[in-house]
């Protein structure tokens, strides 16, 4: 097995598309999921518990099911078929966002539920208004929010089922690293698949390391636990 393949233009294109898809869908999921998680903790309304349970269910939803739902919505005869988004980059982003948003929302909700009472109480006693309280809450929960986003990022990067269905794995168009690996495996080109898998793992590792570097708490020299 020859593990030393040249990274050609096609591979670079696939890597670029994968990163673009992952970053974009994670960003959108964070923009929706973080406020939603905070709101879910703060708000009191009938059916809140059901919404929390639904979100938890969606956190574990199988990607192929999400892919199928998005496919049915975007297919020509579907309700949004007129948009012509099926088998496009945008369709893959939609599927990824649907998969990741509940994860980000769920982790942020749990963290907020655990800590927000003290933070809100403190903000209130300091005379903070609602916006200042929210800013403080996000700042104080930044580690947990970061964890939520990085978990979503990991899920997005490793996802294959949903984007395969809605993206179609079209060469030079919607082919990502994971869908390529899947295709190569089907073709029996295992060494090439392993090679791409290794690149994927290295990219994921670098991104996680970069994130960890920004958030790391230094272990004190005298710590003995």
């Amino acid at each position: 097995m020859n593990m030393f393949y040249i990274i050609d233009a096609e591979i670079l294109g696939i890597i670029a598309l994968t990163l673009r898809l992952t970053f974009l869908s994670t960003t959108i999921a964070a923009i929706i999921g973080i406020p939603l998680g905070l709101w879910l903790d703060y708000a009191n309304f009938t059916g809140k518990n059901i919404l929390v349970v639904v979100n938890r269910t969606l956190m574990a939803s199988p990607p192929v099911v999400v892919g199928l739902v998005v496919y049915l919505i975007l297919m020509r005869q579907g309700p949004l078929g007129f948009l012509g988004l099926l088998f496009t980059f945008e369709a893959m982003v939609i599927a990824q966002v649907l998969l990741i948003t509940p994860i980000v929302c769920g982790i942020v909700y749990t963290a907020s539920q655990r800590n927000s009472e003290n933070i809100r109480m403190f903000a209130f006693t300091m005379g903070a208004n609602k916006i200042q309280t929210q800013i403080l809450l996000v700042k104080e929960l930044s580690n947990e929010i970061f964890f939520a986003v990085i978990t979503g990022f990991g899920r997005a990067m490793s996802e294959v089922g949903a984007i395969m269905i809605v993206g179609g794995n079209i060469r030079h168009h919607t082919r990502t690293m994971t869908t390529t690996i899947s295709l190569l495996r089907n073709r029996g080109e295992i060494d090439q698949a392993v090679y791409l898998g290794a690149i994927l793992m290295i990219i994921a590792f670098i991104v996680q390391m970069a994130g960890d570097f920004l958030r790391r708490r230094e272990r004190r020299a005298d710590e003995n636990f």
Partner: peptide, 16 residues
């Protein structure tokens, strides 16, 4: 007003 009142708790809350 709320801005004029504050409170110190038994277990103080300190920001990170």
């Amino acid at each position: 007003s709320q801005q004029d009142i504050t409170m110190v708790f038994r277990k103080p809350f300190l920001m990170r």
